[in-house]
Amino acid sequence: PGPLLVGTAGKPVELTISPSGGGDPRHAVVIPVDDEEPLRYHAWVADRRAYVHARSEGRLGYLHVPDMQAPGWAQIHRDLRVEVAREGLVVDVRENRGGHTSQLVVEKLARRVVGWDSPRGARPSSYPMDAPRGPVVAVANEFSGSDGDIVNAAIKALGIGPVVGTRTWGGVVGIDSRYHLVDGTLVTQPKYAFWLEGQGWGVENHGVDPDVEVVTTPDDYAAGRDPQLDEAIRLALAALAENPAKTAPALPEAE
């Protein structure tokens, strides 16, 4: 079917589907896409979310932050409210391509539940909303870069939770894209140095060291194992055993 769909991206295409066991064929109209990467990415996230839910027996939520730009900010909010309502949270910033929204991400992760809104006939919601109710564990790797470096340094500096994985990419000195030559060439130069509490100026060319180093080996990749995620789950569950998640109080008795 591949060659038959060439040139059909974005256009309605009718497919005739013949049941393998016999019977009348059925017809379906689909609109092919020109790039399957977004679909594969969302499947990757869904698989890891389901894995975290299963391994933690539903106690831990999972979020992946692919970048610190508009797409990453949108990705967080696809599932944020549902995932932070669980007892703990695993925040995966592996492969994070950087950007400029790490401050917003950190603000969400640093929220602390100080109250509850209990509406009549509905489940209580935390105050502030979208706040983790228990431990937060971050997962990073060598492809977490730029603002993806910074977010891990901030998580450590603010004491939000441990970082699991491998040392991040190590590139936080920013550039402008303002200067063009007459032939259209873009000229950049290092311009924005970055100092971080606990790291000083040392993130550039080094990265952020994880609190717990876990290396994913080629054998792990080949076997479909994710030891970094496994360790993050273990740490979050261990933290829950010592400090249970916050839950809404019972309503007072009527007087």
Rank of each mutant, 00 (worst) to 15 (best):
I31H: 14
I31S: 13
P32S: 12
D34G: 14
D34L: 12
D35I: 08
D35A: 08
E36I: 14
E36D: 10
E37I: 12
P38C: 06
P38I: 07
R40K: 15
R40C: 09
Y41E: 07
Y41L: 08
A43M: 11
A43W: 10
W44A: 15
W44P: 01
V45G: 00
V45S: 00
V45E: 00
A46N: 05
R49Y: 06
A50W: 07
A50T: 10
A50D: 09
A50E: 09
Y51G: 08
V52W: 03
V52N: 02
V52K: 00
V52T: 05
H53C: 08
A54T: 10
A54L: 12
A54E: 10
R55Y: 14
S56I: 09
S56P: 06
E57V: 13
G58R: 05
R59S: 08
R59I: 06
L60C: 04
L60W: 03
G61N: 03
G61I: 03
Y62W: 06
Y62G: 00
Y62N: 02
Y62S: 01
L63P: 01
L63Y: 01
L63M: 02
L63K: 01
H64E: 05
H64P: 00
V65K: 00
P66F: 00
D67H: 02
D67P: 00
M68Q: 07
A70P: 07
A70H: 10
P71G: 04
A74S: 11
I76E: 03
I76N: 03
I76K: 00
I76Q: 01
I76H: 02
I76C: 05
H77T: 08
R78A: 07
L80I: 04
L80S: 00
E83K: 02
E83C: 02
V84E: 01
A85T: 15
A85P: 03
A85F: 08
E87Y: 09
G88I: 06
L89H: 04
V90P: 01
V91E: 00
V91T: 04
V91H: 01
D92V: 06
D92K: 04
V93P: 00
R94Q: 15
R94E: 04
R94T: 10
R94A: 07
E95H: 14
N96V: 05
N96K: 05
N96C: 10
N96P: 04
R97D: 07
R97Q: 12
R97E: 09
R97S: 15
G98D: 00
G99M: 00
G99Q: 01
H100A: 11
T101A: 10
T101Y: 13
T101I: 09
S102D: 06
S102Q: 08
Q103Y: 12
Q103N: 10
L104N: 13
L104D: 10
L104W: 14
V105D: 03
V105H: 02
V105A: 04
V106I: 15
V106H: 03
E107M: 11
E107W: 13
K108W: 14
K108C: 12
K108R: 15
K108Q: 11
L109K: 02
L109T: 02
